[in-house]
Write a protein that binds this DNA or RNA. Structure first.
Lengths: 145, 145
DNA sequence: ATTTGAATTAGAATGATTCTAAGGCTCAAT
DNA sequence: ATTGAGCCTTAGAATCATTCTAATTCAAAT
C-alpha cells in the first residue's frame, strides 16, 4: 500500500481546513507565512520564498496563496486598498493597523463580541463572522508623537 | 465683500469634515452618493453621475471621491479586494456583507464596543477607530438557503 | 512504463487606480 | 472688465496587483 500524499492539516484552527496536497513549493510558502508576523503581501512572500525554493515563480506564489486560503490554512487580509496580505495565525484574533507606519499586528480575543447586542442588524440576517480592524498608533509611533 | 466660495460641511458627522470647494461636478457626485445606499464603486458613481453632469470624466469622479474622502465628507469602504466602494452615511455604523450576493448594507451602532475589554492590545498602542465588518447571509439570501 | 490529472511556469491580459500634461474656470486684486 | 494664480477637469498614458492562458512538468495509480 503506497503512502497517501502528504497533506497539511494544522491543529488549532477554528474552521477545520480541508486537506491540500503538500508539495515542496507549497510547504515552503506555508512555512514562510508561519514564520512571518508582519502580514506579507504576495510579492513579499515571493521574495522570502526564493531562497528556499530557487526558481519559484510569482504565479506559483499566487496560486498557492489562493489554494491555502480556500482550504482555510491561511487568511487573506484586506485592510486598505492595495496588495492583499496573508496571515497564518490560527488563533482567533483581530488586526491592529497603525495609521502612521502602516504596520499590521494581531490582537488576540479576550472576550467575544455579540453582534446582536451592539448593532442593529437587518431582520432575518444570518451572521457567520465578525471582522474587526483597530486603527490608531502602534506603541512605537505613539511614543514618537 | 464677495461671497465666500460655496463649501460643503454636512451636519451630523463624527469627525468634523474640512471644507471643500463645492463645484458643480463635486456637488452632483456627492449627491449621487447621499442618494445611494448600495455602496457604489467609482465606476458606479461615474455611471450615475453622467445623467446629471453630461461629459463628466471618470478621472473627475476619482479625483472627487478622493477629495471628499480626505475632507471627511464620505467614506471609502474596502471589504474585499476589488474596487473600493463609497458611502456618505454619516451615522456611526458598521458594514454587513452578504457572502452570497455580495451586497453591503449599513448597521447602526446600538452600543459602543470597548476595544480594551475585548482584545489584547499591544501595550502603549493608541486606538483611534474601530472598523467592524459583519459577514453572513442577508435576509433575502438566508431565506433562499 | 503509461496514463491521468494536478502543479508549475512564463508571459499575456485584465482591471482598478494613479499619474501627467494641457486646458478651463474662479476668484480676488487690480 | 482684465488679469494672474491656483485649483478643477480632462483624455490618455502609466502603473500595479492580480488573473488568465497555454504549455510543460510532476506525481501517484494503473
Amino acid at each position: 500500500m503506497p503512502p497517501s500524499p502528504p497533506t497539511l492539516s494544522p491543529a488549532g484552527s477554528t474552521t477545520a481546513p480541508t486537506d491540500v496536497r503538500m508539495t515542496p513549493a507549497r510547504k515552503e510558502i506555508y512555512d514562510v507565512l508561519t514564520e512571518s508576523k508582519d502580514h506579507p503581501t504576495a510579492t513579499d512572500v515571493f521574495i522570502r520564498a526564493q531562497s528556499r525554493v530557487p526558481g519559484i515563480s510569482l504565479a506559483t506564489v499566487y496560486n498557492t496563496l489562493e489554494t491555502l486560503t480556500h482550504s482555510g490554512h491561511i487568511k487573506q487580509v484586506n485592510l486598505e486598498r492595495g496588495p492583499s496580505r496573508f496571515c497564518a495565525n490560527k488563533h482567533d484574533h483581530v488586526h491592529f493597523h497603525c495609521d502612521a507606519c502602516g504596520a499590521i499586528t494581531d490582537a488576540d480575543v479576550q472576550e467575544e463580541v455579540d453582534p446582536r447586542s451592539h448593532w442593529k442588524l437587518p431582520r432575518g440576517a444570518k451572521i457567520n463572522r465578525l471582522d474587526v480592524t483597530l486603527r490608531g498608533l502602534c506603541p512605537t509611533c505613539a511614543k514618537a508623537h
